[in-house]
């Protein structure tokens, strides 16, 4: 450029190039104009310490910020809490594959309980419709859409976070935003997560979900929850490590409903299971239901060969429920007529 003679032509040409370059630069930065720091947890959220390094006062400030954040985003008053693990408790889940009928009620109870985004849709539990003859979860159908279940040629296998004893997901996190708590629950500090999604790739059970967009939770559904809580004389609570509404760009996962289970309650997915296929409890207590199941049932874990040592067990009963084609209750007196009352029903059952 310097070697060129300073003619009128050269001057105009380089002038145009500079303007074009600046234009490109400005347009590249254009998305920043729409950037709202509040969607990422605000300045305070950004400057806040790691969960494990927070003092009691830091946590108090953080919980206050979460409350005002929920108020700003959803216009609902909540109480934010940070419930700690209980000594002498290690949580274990057991799921009876002989009983699960694949109705997906657990999936949607979980979404309600844990304030997952409705659109884009985030669900912690995936129920697989497995063809008989395989336990390879790659062969399961995630999207079966029969009006009624179960189907005789399949069995149903719900998968959620297995709360591994040796979890691959926490090891790959470059910023230690995810770790396993003393009661066996693997958690995420949503304010520390940088959204790299390494953990999502590392998890062999498809248990982690990423918020690609600002999570949406309809305000009326939060109000319905608040009303239900108040009818029981409680407040609508959210918990730091579990069900507080998440910001965009972070990973989330099943926490065995730690805000419920650390206070002695059952997880939401278990509470609604219509067939009693889900069992939960403290493995360190030999009288617990899960201890009894581990003692007496044929128990196995998924992808055992990976050495993840899950805290989520599957088991079978001695006998499978009887062949449902042997009975037909449809249209019989007193039987409920089953019609789909919700959702978009696409396609006929095969």
């Amino acid at each position: 450029m310097l070697a060129r003679p300073s003619t009128r032509r050269n001057f105009l040409r380089s002038g145009v190039q500079v303007v074009a370059g600046m234009g490109a630069f400005v347009s590249a930065l254009k998305p920043l104009a729409d950037f709202d720091v509040d969607t990422l947890g605000g300045v305070e959220g950004f400057l806040q310490k790691h969960y494990k390094e927070m003092s009691a006062d830091d946590m108090k400030a953080s919980l206050a910020r979460i409350e005002s954040d929920v108020k700003r985003r959803f216009d609902v008053d909540v109480v934010a809490r940070d419930i700690k693990p209980v000594d002498g408790v290690e949580f274990v889940y057991a799921l009876n594959l002989s009983r699960c009928v694949g109705c997906r009620k657990c999936v949607h109870a979980c979404v309600q309980e844990n304030n997952q985004s409705r659109s884009p849709e985030i669900q912690y539990i995936r129920v697989l419709e497995m063809p008989k003859g395989t336990l390879d979860i790659e062969k399961g159908n995630h999207h079966y859409d029969r009006p009624t279940v179960p189907d005789e040629d399949h069995f149903y296998m719900p998968i959620q976070c297995h709360q591994c004893d040796d979890p691959p997901c926490t090891k790959v996190c470059p910023v230690e935003a995810t770790w396993t708590e003393p009661d066996g629950i693997t958690v995420v500090d949503y304010d520390w997560c940088i959204g790299c999604r390494y953990c999502e790739a590392a998890c062999p059970y498809w248990a982690r979900r990423f918020n690609f967009a600002e999570p949406t939770i309809p305000k009326e559904e939060l109000i319905a929850k608040k009303d239900a809580a108040e009818a029981k004389g409680e407040q609508l609570e959210v918990n730091y490590l579990s069900n507080r509404p998440r910001p965009v760009g972070v990973v989330e996962k099943c926490t065995f409903c730690l805000h419920r289970t650390r206070e002695g309650k059952m997880p939401a997915c278990l509470e609604v299971c219509p067939v009693g296929a889900r069992k939960f409890g403290n493995i360190l207590d030999s009288t617990s239901e899960v201890a009894q199941i581990l003692k007496t049932k044929r128990v196995f874990v998924l992808k055992e060969e990976l050495g993840t040592n899950p805290r989520f067990f599957y088991y079978f009963d001695e006998r499978y429920p009887q062949d449902s084609s042997q009975k037909s209750f449809e249209g019989m007196p007193g039987m409920p007529e089953i019609t789909r009352t919700h959702g978009a029903s696409k396609g006929e059952p095969k």
Partner: peptide, 14 residues
């Protein structure tokens, strides 16, 4: 014996 149950909606994302 257990009757057939209504299926809740399938995931949309995939």
């Amino acid at each position: 014996a257990f009757p057939q149950l209504e299926t809740f909606p399938a995931p949309n994302t995939l």
